[in-house]
Structure formats: structure tokens, C-alpha cells
Amino acid sequence: MNKVKVGIVGLGRLGKQHAENIAFRIPNAELTAVCSIVEKEIAEVQKNWGIKYGYTDYDEMLENKELDAIFISSPSSFHCEQIEKALKAEFHVFSEKPLGLYLNEAEKVAKVVNECRDKQVFMLGFMRRYDKSYVYAKEKIEEGAIGKPILIRCYGLDPTSAIGSFLKFAKNNYSGGLFLDMAIHDLDLARWYLGSEAERVWAIGDSYEYPEFKEINDAETGVALVKFKNGAMGIFVADRNCAHGYHIETEIIGTRGTLRIGTIPEKNLVTVFDHTGAIRECSEGFLERFEQAYLSEVEEFINCIIEKSQPKVTVEDGVNSTALAYACKESFETGKLITL
């Protein structure tokens, strides 16, 4: 196999970034086909990038036997169905998070993934595991630098500037809500860093500035408190209305020390001095903050296909993170303490 020929479904903000990475930044990959329900997106990419095939029908793309792999960057509500179809058509599959919006569908697709494991590669897009700072923190934990991790605190704050586009997305029932769509990255990191699954969850939240969130039974800002099976604790804050920009912060407290990642969400190492004072600008969005991580995760996927190996992120990570995120959603909606 000289190059892995990839077809991608979904050309929104993240999908287009993935498509560009596959087309121009990964030597062993070739973007051969694109699929979207928006014909304008297909025409633009085909014209500007010289992509051979364009589809508005996902099933039609799966009939293209020139392809080796399918990359799924469509809305979350379509993931499970599209994963299952692509695997049954004998393609390697990369899917953006979450694995599914409901635990039963995530468990169902996990069975299909494991049935195909000997001959096909499946990978889920938990890109923070490929960010250099988060990887370094994991190495320090494994070295015993902070002793035994006992508490993780995560802030996931989206910029206010993105609220309009998100509400349009959410009102079509594509997101699954604050915890499944947004906090799931932090919930997965907690499982990874603590080496344990969740046991009990309590989540609260509300709409403070934008009542539209309450209208769709979602929260503008939410908090979850999680007890893990090994006794460790987790505090997770997710917010759609961050005035200063995109703020992703993680703290892991251990018995002999503490690690913090992204305490100040700096855009770069530049300080601007002007009449307002000394300013350190913030990242403006996830594509900027995790640009390298999005590239690195797809590089691993392509390398796994070529080397006939399996990625470090497994389908079980997808199932268990979905279970935890859905428990947070259930607790938020019912006001009850949820036992997993």
C-alpha cells in the first residue's frame, strides 16, 4: 500500500480541517473522496484541492472500492450508524468523538468494531491524548512525579463568539448536550490519567445569559462531580459562554504533587504592551489550540493501517466515556445522583 486512500464525511469546521490535514499534511495518506449534504462544500473542496470524488450520499461513497478508509466527521447523532456501515463495507474507520449519543448504540457499535478488529483499524478522535502537553503530563504521572492521583479538575470553556453557530447545530439535535458534546474530552482525560472508571455522578447546570439553551433542555454552563472506582475524585466545569476566548485547563492533584495544563490559555508567547497594559492573548478556538493534536491523531490512524496495528485509543474508551458523559446528562436532567 503506497498511500492510504481516504473518503471523509462531514466538511464543517472540524471536518474541513481534518480533510486539509489528510490532503496536504500526511505523506502516507491521500484524500480521494469527500461527502457532505451541502453541495457547495463539496464543489469548493473538489475545485480547490483537486479531489477526485464528491458525494452527497454517504452510502454511495461506501460503494467506492478505490477507498481504503472512511473518516467520519459528521454530527454526533450519525456516528454509530456510519461507523457500522463503513466497517461492514470492510473499510478502516476513524470517527470523531463521541462514539454515540446513547449507551445502547455505543455498545452495539463496539461489538461490530471488535468483530472486525483482526482485519480493520478503528480509531476514535480523542485528540487531547495526542497534545504534547497532555502527553507529557501522562508521562509524569506514570513516572510517579506527583504520587498517586487523587483529584482531577477540568475546565472546558468555549468562546462566546461560537454560541450562535453552536445553537444552530444543537437545535437540529446533533450535539447530545453539554456533557456528551463538550465535556466528554475532559471525562475521557480523567479516565486516562486516573486509570479508573467512574462509579457515581452528580451534575448540575443552567442557562444564565442565553435562555435558548434551556429551551433545548441543555445547559449554558454545567458542573459534574464524579467519584471514581479507585476512590479518586473529579470536578468538571463546562461552559459555552467564555468572554476571554477558548479556555481549556486541567489540574491533576496527587499525594505528592500537582500538575496543571493550560492554566493561562495563551495564544502564543507574545506579550502585547499598549495603553491598556500588558496583554497575553488567548486562543480563540479548538482548531487553534489543538492544531498539532488533530494532525497527530490522524497520523497514528494512517500508520496503524500501514503497519497493521491498532491505535492506543480503543472503542472501549468510546463506550466508557459515553457512559460517563450520559450519566452526567441524566443527572443534570433529573437532579439525581447517578450510579454507573
Rank of each mutant, 00 (worst) to 15 (best):
R128C: 15
Y193I: 09
W202A: 15
R256H: 01
T250R: 10
E299T: 08
V112T: 12
T250F: 11
C35D: 02
Y53M: 15
E139M: 13
I252K: 00
G195V: 04
H247Y: 08
P311Q: 10
H92T: 07
K97F: 03
G335Q: 11
L337P: 06
H247Q: 14
F71L: 15
V9I: 11
R25N: 10
F94W: 15
E291F: 15
M61W: 01
V34P: 04
E330P: 02
F213D: 00
F91C: 15
P27E: 10
E330R: 10
E333Q: 06
S77A: 09
E249V: 06
G50C: 11
V319C: 11
E266V: 10
A106G: 03
P98N: 02
S77E: 07
L340Q: 13
K65L: 14
S321C: 09
R128P: 09
I184Q: 04
E20T: 07
E316C: 06
D239Q: 10
Y58C: 14
G164N: 09
K5V: 02
F78V: 03
G12A: 12
S331W: 09
Y58A: 12
A86G: 05
N104W: 04
C242L: 14
T160E: 12
T339C: 13
E90L: 03
G144Q: 05
H92D: 14
V34I: 15
Y246V: 01
F122Y: 12
M1H: 06
K329G: 09
A145T: 04
I22E: 09
A243N: 06
E96W: 05
I252T: 05
